[in-house]
Write a protein that binds this DNA or RNA. Structure first.
Lengths: 337, 337
DNA sequence: ATGAAAGCGCTAACAA
DNA sequence: TTGTTAGCGCTTTCAT
């Protein structure tokens, strides 16, 4: 069913039908009602491809994430979708699986679909390509979760340094003196910054950090498990606290500590970056940061919409999202009296 | 950059350029190479809107899920995307948030985008609308996760009855005689069937089920927590086993059992439907079914592709995906000697 | 092996 | 208030 057919049925020109469907003025109420009624009974839906072609915009935005099975990205996706849907945008999603190659493919397929804007949860190193998309194709891009070095893009990020400081100081205040750190991949700025922040905080607190106290994970439960085993094997002198760079890895750590009969927080206090709903259900509940994933999604969506609406906008914004500390039992060793 | 411009630069007709770009025959190797080279240096990407308009297909499929923060749907999304991407399809995603109204909105926006097919993780009761989409718009739909009563669609589902039986018999074999059940919403067929299967299995095992032994949850951690409290409060006689209809609710149950100092599996054995990677990290590790989410996504994607490629296909397929039992410590009460 | 021309469904300029 | 016309970028006959 096309607009033309609707027009024929209604006995009006195609343009009049278009006016009615799109809610333009310059049409009598009666005609409009009649056309809309016809459209409804015939289940007319405008052809988006034709509209996109004509208006040179698709009312679609693209979202590139490494992996939706990390709940963080699930929340981001939801927030982005919920914010942009009321403005008439659909969300095209694409996965990078954490690979540079797939990230570029994902971006290209979004560009080919003429998306009006892109939110990219980058795993890094596609800076040139992102610049191409922004400058050559003139599609605005907002990067989240990691800094894309070398690309001058809008960013929405965790305040990783501040968060590291918060977690480290907290464990220290709980009496921990030998704190281990399970980091994310250092090739990603989020991984590097959390790691860096930890080292700085430890230095400020005048706590020594032996290289064996830091092990690199890969954000996953299994990676956290492997890292935890390595950490415990290497630090024979005994740790009294461990920080994990995300909550999924904390799950792996929990499993290892249990297997080794190390009690949390008595033997080892644990605190983690980010927040997943399930940390409350762990035994003991895990000390984390407050939840900011949907906030990051929302801020990115708002910024993207602004960039779409203001194509001449040249300023680049870097937004740092701060989180609170949410103390739960996994890190409480000091009894308040 | 358009095909026409590429053609002009190459000094050929637009059709020849098209042939080169699309890999058609009837073009000399030299010409093709030259055109492709020009396209590359100019970062040419075909305009999908124009292509869609002309070919009357968008190479996009739609995926409607309640919520991506349930890892099950995250896995399904990944599997769908990974299967269809090599065939050139993009995935448009839309959320229903578990509401009937939003599910219809989500479907409509996908139809307006001229998607070539839809995978719908329904929460139910949109049967008429789905029939309209199939029959009027001729867009194939594959429904997953729940049966859409009244719509004659292709389905890919868990074998809920068999799974209930498996879990119930397992707990019984472990010596449980008074087994509680935290169900999903009974308005969803997956919830109803798991519940029904539990009752049938208990009957076959000749174990009595008092109405207080069953509490309805909502698939979430918080819902599981509430249901667990209600279950424990009501069954004062004491349960020795609990089955949860999904793993997220099991997390809520774990939290409640810990708060009440009930030990798993000693006081209460626990087993759960579905599987999330994190169950291994729980204390104790949770007995679940084997992971089938990506299998469901894959089967749905394959079926959808078949339906897209064979528009005349009239048969309706119902695929039941069976799962194995994965016994972990949460349910082991019988020591093998 | 290559080109010319028509048209997919819609919107936007301009007329009436 | 309404209609006419052109054209978005591509693919597809049909010629050559």
């Amino acid at each position: 069913m096309t607009l033309k057919e609707i027009a024929t049925i209604a006995g009006v020109s195609i343009k009049t039908a278009s006016r009615a469907i799109n809610g333009y003025p310059d049409i009598s109420k009666a005609t409009r009602e009649r056309i809309l009624e016809i459209a409804r009974t015939h289940h007319y839906l405008p052809n988006n491809a034709a509209r996109s072609l004509r208006q040179n915009r698709s009312c679609t935005i693209g979202l590139v994430v490494p992996d939706l099975t990390n709940l963080f990205f699930g929340e981001v996706g939801r927030a982005v979708h919920n914010h942009l849907k009321p403005s008439g945008y659909s969300t095209l999603i694409s996965f990078s699986e954490g690979s540079h190659r797939m990230e570029i493919d994902a971006l290209d397929s979004l560009v080919a679909k003429q998306v009006d804007g892109i939110i990219l949860a980058t795993v890094g190193s596609t800076a040139d390509h992102v610049q191409l998309i922004r400058e050559h194709y003139r599609i605005p891009v907002v990067v989240i979760d990691n800094i894309l070095e070398g690309a001058d893009t809008d960013l929405v990020l965790h305040d990783d340094m501040a968060n590291s400081k918060r977690l480290t100081e907290h464990l220290c205040a709980q009496g921990c003196r030998s704190i281990g750190f399970i980091s994310g991949p250092l090739a990603e700025t989020s991984g590097a910054h959390r790691h860096e922040g930890f080292l700085q905080a430890m230095a400020t607190l005048e706590l020594p950090v032996h290289p064996t106290q830091v092990v690199t994970g890969d954000w996953t439960v299994q990676g956290g498990r492997r890292a935890a085993m390595e950490l415990l094997d290497r630090c024979t002198s005994g740790l009294d606290g461990i920080i994990t760079a995300n909550s999924l890895m904390a799950l792996g750590l929990y499993a290892v500590l249990r297997e080794r009969d190390l009690r949390i927080p008595h033997d080892i206090a644990v605190a983690s970056f980010d927040y997943l709903e399930l940390v409350d259900a762990l035994d003991p509940p895990l000390t984390t940061l407050s939840r900011v994933d949907s906030k990051i999604g929302l801020l990115a969506a708002q910024r993207l919409q602004y960039l779409i609406d203001n194509p001449e906008e040249k300023g680049v914004e870097r937004t740092l999202v701060t989180a609170e500390l949410q103390v739960r039992q996994s890190s409480v060793r000091v009894t308040l009296t």
